[in-house]
Amino acid sequence: MLTVKNLHVAYGQSKVIRDVSFHVNAGESLAIMGRNGMGKSTLLKSLIGMIPSQSGSIDIEGIPLAKLDSYQRVEHGLAFVPQGRMVFPFLTIEENIMTGAETSGYTKVPDYIYRFFPVLEEMKYRKAGNLSGGQQQMLAISRALISDPKVLILDEPTEGIQPSIIKELARTLNQLRRERQFSIVVSEQVLSFALELSDRFLVIDRGQIVHEEARETINQEKIRSFLTV
């Protein structure tokens, strides 16, 4: 599905991502974990094209993406939910969702989105800036999903969300990926959320992948050791 090979990303002369390679299978959820400043967000932004890569390849179903603009990558099946959500505060919930519909051709919010996030339908005419952090995250995910992605990329989705909502969010994303048949790449520091959502775990440290484990055999203490200062 999504294949990344020998990816290098830099800010000026400072290399942030160093020779990163990984593969995401169809329907799989992959967690990229690590401490702050280790390159998680930079890696995901490079996948969607917000930050250019110096070298290496990014392919989806064999189609090379590394030289394409962000909107072209969305057309080929990537969708991105940024850290901090970045909703349009003065647009309504419904207007926010529809900003992501250009590549899919939807003329209204599809029923399945409101089925999975009923609170958004109840408040669809409310301005997005008035929503809680958890509700804004649901909105940002819905805006990405309306493009009918093959791979949904989530950057720190639990940031600023109440603990009571985090587990439910993971369950909803799992149900969505099974029903809508997309893969997930998520950067995360909250191990409990990643365990609920992900099938496989990569740990990034100083821009390099230093550890990989499947959920079935995961050593939680070892993963935690990479997340603590």
Rank of each mutant, 00 (worst) to 15 (best):
H8S: 02
Q54F: 03
I165H: 03
T42H: 09
K15Q: 12
E102G: 11
F226M: 08
D59M: 13
I141R: 10
I58E: 00
V203M: 10
L65Q: 11
P157I: 02
R224A: 13
F80N: 03
L2I: 12
A144C: 10
Q181P: 01
I93R: 00
K5M: 00
L131D: 05
E168F: 01
E61V: 01
M33K: 07
L78E: 01
G56M: 03
L195T: 06
Q54A: 10
G134L: 11
M38W: 08
M38F: 05
L131V: 04
S46I: 05
E221W: 04
T103F: 10
Q220E: 15
L47N: 03
R35D: 11
D199Q: 05
G129R: 10
Q220T: 15
E156H: 04
S147K: 10
R177S: 14
A66Y: 00
T103M: 04
L120I: 06
Y11H: 12
G56N: 07
K167Q: 13
S53A: 15
I32K: 01
R206L: 11
T99S: 11
I184C: 12
T217I: 03
N130A: 12
N6K: 13
E121I: 00
P118R: 07
I51A: 06
T103E: 04
A214K: 14
E221K: 14
T107Y: 01
K150I: 02
I166T: 14
I17P: 01
I204R: 11
A79K: 03
I32T: 01
T42Y: 10
K222S: 06
H23W: 00
E212Q: 14
L152H: 09
A79L: 06
D19N: 15
P118I: 03
I161E: 02
G37F: 08
S187C: 09
S132Q: 08
K5E: 15
N219M: 02
L43V: 12
S70T: 15
I97F: 03
